[in-house]
């Protein structure tokens, strides 16, 4: 236990004080927090759905939860059920084999709901291509999309910015 405390103490607070981070996250953080406080009573629940990605996007979503970005401090958390999710964060081109599951997840959400299509594949099927027997389409071809985040994969700051853009529109 002592070693854990010692390690935690010496590691210190890694969450980037947003004003110092310098890059995009600098302005995004406080705005995001304010928007979530105002519109979502301090808590935004996100259901992440992989509709067929290569799992690169998933690694970057995980990264938004690490101590540097610590997305939870703005009141954002990832939920296990679409039933109490405010936002659907979809990655990957929608494969034919995931099309039904994606639609069912979307329909299970309480409305109004937000949909963010994350990554080049979610945006336009990326390297996998639209003219592909195994692909049903980009996310917007299957369910209504509010915001698209480009990148292969998008970096954590881009993801956070995309989420902010989506909630600012409501």
């Amino acid at each position: 236990m002592l070693r854990i405390l010692k390690k935690a103490l010496f590691t210190g607070v890694k969450s980037e004080v947003l004003a110092e981070a310098g890059e995009q996250i600098e302005t995004v953080g406080p705005e995001l927090e304010a928007a979530i406080k105002k519109r979502f009573r301090g808590s935004l629940a996100i259901r992440a759905v992989d509709a067929g990605s290569c799992n690169g996007c998933e690694l970057e979503i995980h990264a938004t939860n690490n101590c540097y970005y610590d997305i939870e401090r703005y009141g954002i958390h990832f939920t296990a059920s679409p039933r109490f999710a405010d936002m659907l964060l979809v990655t990957g081109p929608v494969t034919r084999n995931m099309e039904t599951a994606l639609i069912m997840t979307y329909e299970a959400m309480p409305k109004p709901s937000l949909v963010v299509a994350m990554g080049d594949c979610a945006a336009n099927c990326g390297v996998f291509g639209k003219n592909n027997y195994a692909i049903a389409g980009a996310v917007a071809d299957i369910i209504p999309v509010d915001v698209v985040i480009h990148g292969c994969p998008p970096e954590p700051t881009d993801i956070i910015r995309g989420i902010l853009t989506a909630i600012s529109r409501t």
């Binding site: 992989d50 067929g52 990605s53 990957g92 081109p93 494969t95 034919r96 084999n97 995931m98 599951a101 390297v127 996998f128 291509g129 592909n132 027997y133 195994a134 692909i135």
Partner: peptide, 22 residues
Amino acid sequence: GYTHKGIEKRLQGQQAEQAIHL
């Protein structure tokens, strides 16, 4: 099979320099 993206089919006909991205 849920993430089947037809990668092997799509690789066909591509040049190696392009196919490596896929």
